[in-house]
Amino acid sequence: MVEILLERTVPLPLGEAWRRVTEWRRHGEVVPWTAVRVEPPGPTRRGTVVVARSGVGPLAFDDPMEVTVWRPPRDGAPGLCRLEKRGRVVLGWAELEVRPGPGGRTRVVWREEIRVRLVPSLFDGVVRRSARYVFGRALNRLLRRA
C-alpha cells in the first residue's frame, strides 16, 4: 500500500476551492488518458460513484470510487470528501479536504492510499513517485482553472 499526501495553499475562498477539486469530470481533463463519469448523474452525495477509466485501448481499466463522506465547507468550516476505491485493479481510498489557511487563503489537502493489484510491494517507490507526480499535476491544474 502506498500513501501520498499533497498540500496546496491557494488564494481562493473555501467554496471555490471545494468546487474545483470535486468537479469529477474535470479530473478526466487533467489526468492523462483518463475519462470520468459519475453514477448517478447529478449532485454528489454519499453513495455517489465516481468512475475513472484510465488507459489506452485494451490496456484501459475502470477505477470506481464510492463517496463515503461528503461534507462540503459551510460557514468557514472545513470540507471533506472521502472516496473508497472499489475496483478490480486499484484499491485504497482518497480524501480531499479544504480548510482555512494563512492570510485568508485556503489550504487544500489530498491524501490517498493506493494498492495496485498484482504489483508487488517491491514497486511501491515507483507507484508512489508516479502517483505524486500525476495527482500533484492534476491538483495544480484543478486549482488553477475555474
Rank of each mutant, 00 (worst) to 15 (best):
120 P>N: 01
121 S>H: 12
146 A>L: 14
116 V>I: 15
14 L>S: 03
75 D>I: 10
109 V>H: 01
72 P>C: 12
67 V>E: 06
61 F>C: 09
75 D>C: 11
64 P>T: 03
142 L>Q: 03
49 V>E: 09
1 M>N: 11
92 G>H: 07
68 T>V: 13
137 R>T: 15
101 G>W: 00
61 F>S: 12
34 T>I: 02
38 V>D: 07
138 A>Q: 03
146 A>S: 15
118 L>D: 10
109 V>K: 00
3 E>N: 14
6 L>F: 00
132 R>A: 10
47 G>F: 00
74 R>L: 13
13 P>G: 02
51 V>Y: 06
85 K>L: 09
8 R>A: 11
98 V>G: 00
44 T>Q: 03
66 E>K: 12
102 P>A: 15
132 R>W: 05
10 V>R: 01
30 V>F: 04
42 G>T: 07
37 R>C: 04
43 P>L: 14
25 R>P: 08
23 E>L: 03
137 R>Q: 13
6 L>W: 00
91 L>M: 13
43 P>G: 15
96 L>Q: 10
121 S>F: 11
17 A>I: 00
85 K>F: 05
100 P>K: 06
134 V>K: 04
49 V>A: 08
46 R>T: 15
36 V>F: 06
40 P>C: 12
66 E>H: 09
43 P>E: 15
52 A>M: 12
47 G>M: 01
26 R>H: 07
103 G>Q: 11
89 V>P: 04
31 V>R: 04
107 R>N: 07
141 R>W: 07
5 L>E: 09
142 L>W: 02
104 G>S: 11
62 D>K: 04
68 T>Y: 00
73 P>N: 10
42 G>N: 09
75 D>K: 11
122 L>M: 11
48 T>M: 07
18 W>I: 03
47 G>C: 01
126 V>I: 12
12 L>S: 06
51 V>R: 08
25 R>S: 12
110 W>K: 06
19 R>K: 10
96 L>R: 07
15 G>Y: 02
3 E>T: 13
82 R>W: 08
137 R>V: 14
124 D>Q: 14
49 V>Q: 07
56 V>E: 04
74 R>F: 09
4 I>V: 15
114 I>A: 13
71 R>A: 11
83 L>F: 06
1 M>W: 08
59 L>V: 10
14 L>R: 01
126 V>L: 11
51 V>P: 05
12 L>P: 03
56 V>Y: 03
23 E>Q: 06
145 R>N: 15
141 R>A: 15
107 R>Q: 13
91 L>T: 12
108 V>I: 04
16 E>T: 12
117 R>L: 13
34 T>E: 01
124 D>A: 13
44 T>R: 03
129 R>K: 15
2 V>M: 01
29 E>C: 08
22 T>R: 08
126 V>Q: 05
